[in-house]
Design a binder for these strands. Structure first.
Lengths: 387, 387
DNA sequence: TTTTCTTCGGCAAACGTTTACTGGAACTTT
DNA sequence: AAAGTTCCAGTAAACGTTTGCCGAAGAAAA
């Protein structure tokens, strides 16, 4: 059987640059090249230098798939978000990408669009590509996840939810602090009639924000009117609907706090359309401090939750599990929040201070705050959606 | 030398599910399993069925790295964008991700942030992961790209720029049509004093948009005032600056056309802050039709360039090269544009029609359009940045 | 000098697929 | 019936790395 061993003809004539080419060029074995690249400390200084030089001259870089195949490390991280169209997420992605790339990782993004089927596709994609960990930034723990990923021992990090497994970490956002600051800021300005537009309440994070609001109010001895507690959906449209609902009420609040900035911005639009001025007629506070918040009119007072903190926390958690850095590591990572005061908040209309305070800002109308407000509200009610 | 052949001890005791496991379970060879999975038509119906059944029962899926390593096909596509923070891009990403995933591809996103060093890092990342093609949606052909990617025979697709190589395709956006519609819309309303805020002129796409504007104007016999041709940078802040600049002019235009929506939205903010009403005092048109455009106040009249068309065009181009579908394929892919009229455009102030037309929309002020406009402009000039 | 450690480069075995060949069985053709 | 053909499942050679093991060379100990 001599014909057997005939080397099988290779299909590609134009081979890519190979670790063997580098080895030949540097006059060492491929093992040494590999060890040099991976910075194994036992390689001789001189040899290493020669190898690096060859690598540079040949402009070689290792094949990621081959590497991953044998080492079992793909250096791939999954990032699961709810919708990339919501400005909050691109900012998060940016931060995550930056830190991941700086550490030699690549990221795989999956948008679930709040849809379980899509989510399951995302999980599958990540499983197939053998991610080393998944950051679930979807603000709601969906169960199928845990099953599929956990069963394959994939590290995960969630927002707002505890670690039921040693391979899971949690990012704990300190909603309380920021929201409390917001409520106290409003109270200090004289507001007592404060509304809260929450996110979708099936999300744990929405519940927590709402709870923090109610708690902060009660701390001040204010019991928020149930009519002023509205469930939104964290979208612009949702914010618009919520504000329309609010404006249709007989008894209006003087300030609205929103569970995220998009909601607040939607509210701002409806207020503008209805002829109500912010903050003269109504104060508005958002949450997140997305980039846009600074550029709406008026610039939005909001609670900042840093996307970079979130990104860094997620990355470090994942890495610490994947690379086995300190196994009994802290299982939580706290994300601070902080009130950023801009110009969407001021004294409530009709307050003793409001006239003078507001006077500085706008002086084109001679009617009093209160009367102009009432007039605008009446107008808004008469034609709620004229455009 | 008998000790030689002792099977080397494998490091992982808990192996992942393997093609061999499936083969054993289905009582066929691994080759048959592989062929079944890849839908090679020569496998026997019965066997194939048995294999699929085993795959299902075991919940097996192939290892992407191993696959890529031997087949040379990573099923990875690079998507190069300028900044993920600009709402235009997430919408593009969404479309691209959707179509790519539907076709079994994965995408690698790289944001250049208009920075050449970052761009080069992105290219490197894509090279290392062996993408099968790169969609360069950065709206400006940067040279280092062509060098590195072309030299490695990576297919590419650009926006607005011809194919210098058989591995490059171009997405040709029909700026002319949409912009012409915009200009004619304004002209029909009676505007003659129209400003254009362009994007950064080092980008070819910005130049094309501007050229289309000028051409459309000249077609109507209007020669735009050089003072009204402003170079922006396609950001919100840039739009604000541009509008401030415009408002500081002695002779103001009655309408502003912007090279993208973010610029227009920035302009809207400045106008609102200055007390000028849109469209009563000034008409504004954007470009892109990003999601947000519909939700600003007033809803923005804009030229739609579909992100989905762009995404689909980019993907199909790349795939046709990578998979060698029809080598002498069309080298271009045309993206249509179309004017979407919303409420940021109306008759110019002071026009015979403007009073009655505007009356429908707002009736709180009794002064004429023209006088209120002048007053507001004076105010805006006096304190250009009071907040 | 001889023996025992150390060090550190090289050899070659994985890693989990794809796919060029091979060869047996079932058909066709002569 | 013999000789081709065709069809298709199986065998094993890549793919480009990492890394366990081995052994040569030098250092240290005896």
């Amino acid at each position: 059987m001599p014909g057997r061993k005939r080397p099988r003809q290779t299909k590609r004539d134009k081979r890519r640059l190979d670790i063997r080419d580098v080895a030949k060029h540097a006059r060492v074995s491929i093992a040494t090249v590999s060890r040099t690249i991976n910075r194994v400390p036992t390689v001789d200084k001189q040899l290493a230098e020669r190898v690096w030089k060859s690598i540079g001259e040949l402009n070689y870089f290792p094949n990621t798939q081959a590497r991953a195949l044998v080492s079992g490390r793909t250096r791939l991280l999954g990032l699961l978000i709810s919708e990339i169209t919501n400005p909050f997420f691109p900012e998060l992605i940016q931060g995550f990408e930056e830190i991941a790339v700086a550490n030699g990782y690549e990221i795989l993004i999956g948008s679930t669009n709040y849809d379980l089927a899509r989510m399951s596709v995302c999980i599958r994609r990540m499983l197939e590509r053998h991610v080393e960990g998944v950051a679930v930034m979807t603000f709601g723990i969906e169960q199928p996840l845990l099953a599929e990923l956990s069963s394959r021992d994939i590290p995960m990090v969630f927002v707002d939810s505890g670690p039921p497994s040693p391979l899971v970490r949690a990012l704990i956002v300190d909603y309380r602090k920021g929201i409390r600051e917001g409520v106290q800021h409003l109270a200090a300005l004289g507001h007592r009639k404060i509304s809260f537009v929450s996110g979708p309440l099936r999300q744990r994070s929405s519940q927590l924000r709402k709870a923090a609001f109610i708690e902060s109010m009660e701390e001040l001895g204010i019991r928020p009117d149930a009519n002023w507690l509205i469930e939104g959906d964290h979208t612009l449209e949702g914010g618009m609907h919520a504000m329309e609902l609010l404006l249709s009420l007989r008894d209006l609040p003087t300030a609205v706090m929103c569970s995220n900035d998009m909601t607040a911005i939607g509210g701002l639009r409806v207020l503008a359309r209805a002829g109500l001025r912010v903050p003269d007629d109504m104060s508005v506070i958002g949450f997140d401090d997305i980039h846009l918040a600074e550029f709406v009119y008026p610039p939005l007072t909001t609670v900042r939750m840093s996307r970079n903190d979130l990104a860094r926390g997620a990355f470090e958690s994942l890495r610490s599990i994947a690379e086995n850095h300190a196994p009994p590591q802290q299982r939580h990572w706290t994300i601070p929040t902080k009130l950023i005061v801009r110009q969407s908040t001021s004294y409530p209309p009709g307050s003793a201070l409001s006239g003078s305070a507001l006077g500085k800002r706008s002086n084109s109308s001679k009617s009093t705050r209160a009367s102009s407000r009432n007039k605008a509200i009446k107008t808004a009610r008469r034609k709620p959606a004229d455009d």
